[in-house]
Design a protein around this nucleic acid. Structure first.
Lengths: 243, 243
DNA sequence: CGAATAAATATTGTTGACAATATTCTGCCG
DNA sequence: CGGCAGAATATTGTCAACAATATTTATTCG
C-alpha cells in the first residue's frame, strides 16, 4: 500500500495538488472512496506522502466539479446523488448528447461515421445474447465516439463531467432484461441519422436515447422501492446506507 | 480600499476560501481582474487580509469552474476565451437553453409563464427604440426566468457557468443595429410556445434563439477582423492585448 | 439506567516560514 | 549597441505548527 507514493511521483508532471486531485477522483470513481464517505485530509495526505495543503486544494477543485461536497468545519464527503438529481443529470445529458449527435452529423468526418458503424455492428452479438459484460465497454465507446466526433471540447468536457457524476448515484445503471436490445435499436437510429448527415434526426435520436435511459432508471428505482414494500408514488427519501 | 476586508467578514458565513472564491469571481466578472490578467496570490491575500492558503484554494476552485487557468509554477491567469471557444460555448448553451425551454413548457407553473409574458411585453418598448441599456437587464431576466422555471438545478448551474465563461470572451456581445428587434422576435416565438405548452416548439425556439446569437457573434467578429484590415477566413489569432 | 454536562480527543481552518522555480535586473563581452 | 550569463528578486509550491470547531468519551446527577 506504500507504493501508491511511487505511482504518484510519476503523475506529478503538473503540481502536487493536481496529482492528488486525479488520484482522489480515481478513488471515488473506483468506489475506493464510497459514496457518502468522509474524505479525511490528514489520512489522504499521509497515504500520498504529502502535507494537507495539496489535499485541501484538490478537495476544493473536486467540490467545484461536483464530485465532493465540503461542509464547513465538518469535512468533505463524497457527494451522494439522489434519484431526483440523477434524473436532472439525465435531462441535461440528453440535451448535450443530442447536440453532440447533431454536430457529428453536421461536421463529423467520414472516418468517424465509419468507426461508429463498426462499433455498432460489434455490439449486435452482445445485444442479442444479452451479454452485458461485452456490451458495456462498447456502449461506452459508442457514446464517447459521438461526443468526440462532435468537435466541441467544451461540450465533451461537460458531458463527461455529467457521466462521472452519475456514478455517484446509488443504482448502477446496469442493463437488464431486454434493455440491451432496446439500447441497440436506439443506437441504430443514431447511426443511420449520422450516416445520412441528417442533423435534426441525429439530434432527436441521441436525445431520445438518453431520455429512454432516464425513463428506464426511473422505472427501475420505482420497482425497487415497491419491492422493498415502500408505498409507490412521491419521491421517497432513500435512506442512507451509511458510509 | 481597505474596507474590502470588512465587506469580507460579512460574506464569511462559510469558510474563508469560499468567501475568497466569491470575491475573486466577482472581480473577474466585474472586469476588475481583466481577461488574461495574472492572479497574484500574495497581493490578493493581503488585500483580503488573509493568508495565501485560502486564496490558493479559491484559485483551484475557479480553475475547475473554468474562470481561471493555473500554469504550474507560473501562476494563475484569468482565462481568455478565444472566438473558437466562444462558439463552442454557444453550441452547448443552445442545447441547454433549448432543454430549459422544453422543460418549462412541460412543467412550468402558470405563474411563471405569466411572468415570462410580462417581461416580454416590458421589452417591447426597449426593442422598438433600440435602447440597449434598458433591454439588456430585461433580456437577462427573461433568460434567467426560463432556466429557473425549468425546475432543474443541475441544468441551471451548468447554464449559468457557461454564461459566466462567455464574459471572458473579448467581444462584449453588445447588441447593435436591428439586433434588439431580432432578439425580441425570437423571444416572441419562445413565449408563445411556452404558453401553448408545446414542448418541442419551445425547445426549437429557445435553441434557435441561442443559435442566432452565435451566428451574430460570428458575423460581428468577422466584420471586425475585416475592418482591421486582416484577411478574412481562417481563425485569425487575435493578438493579446496584454494584461 | 438514562440523559445532560463537561472534559478529552480528533479534525478542519488558517497562518507564517522555508524550498523550489520563474522572472527581472545587472554587468560583461562580442 | 545588442545579446548573453549570472546574480538578485519575486512568486509559486509545500510544509509543519497553531487556532478554532466538531465529535467522542467520561462523568455526574436525576
Amino acid at each position: 500500500m506504500a507504493d501508491i507514493r511511487e505511482a504518484f511521483q510519476l503523475i506529478r508532471s503538473t503540481s502536487l495538488a493536481t496529482a492528488v486531485e486525479r488520484e482522489i477522483e480515481a478513488m471515488i470513481l473506483n468506489g475506493d472512496l464510497p459514496v457518502g464517505a468522509r474524505v479525511p485530509e490528514l489520512e489522504l495526505a499521509e497515504r500520498f506522502g504529502v502535507s494537507r495543503s495539496p489535499v485541501r486544494e484538490a478537495v476544493r477543485a473536486l467540490d467545484a466539479v461536483g464530485l465532493i461536497e465540503v461542509q464547513p468545519n465538518r469535512g468533505a464527503y463524497v457527494r451522494k446523488i439522489e434519484l431526483s438529481e440523477a434524473l436532472e443529470v439525465y435531462e441535461v445529458r440528453a440535451a448535450l448528447f443530442g447536440q453532440a449527435g447533431r454536430l457529428m452529423a453536421l461536421r463529423g468526418t467520414a472516418e468517424a461515421t465509419g468507426r461508429l458503424r463498426g462499433l455498432h455492428e460489434e455490439m449486435l452479438a452482445a445485444a442479442e445474447t444479452h451479454h452485458f459484460e461485452s456490451y458495456a465497454p462498447l456502449n461506452f465507446a459508442f457514446h464517447e465516439l459521438i461526443v468526440e466526433a462532435a468537435g466541441n471540447r467544451t461540450l465533451a468536457g461537460q458531458y463527461r463531467m455529467l457521466v462521472k457524476r452519475l456514478r455517484l448515484f446509488r443504482t448502477r445503471n446496469l442493463m437488464f432484461g431486454d434493455t440491451l436490445a432496446l439500447s441497440y435499436r436506439e443506437h441504430d437510429a443514431i447511426v443511420r441519422a449520422v450516416e445520412a448527415r441528417d442533423a435534426e434526426a441525429a439530434f432527436a435520436a441521441c436525445f431520445e436515447h438518453v431520455e429512454q435511459g432516464r425513463k428506464r432508471v426511473m422505472e427501475r428505482v420505482k420497482a425497487e422501492e415497491e419491492a422493498e414494500g415502500r408505498p409507490p408514488g412521491g419521491l421517497a427519501r432513500t435512506q442512507s446506507t451509511g458510509a
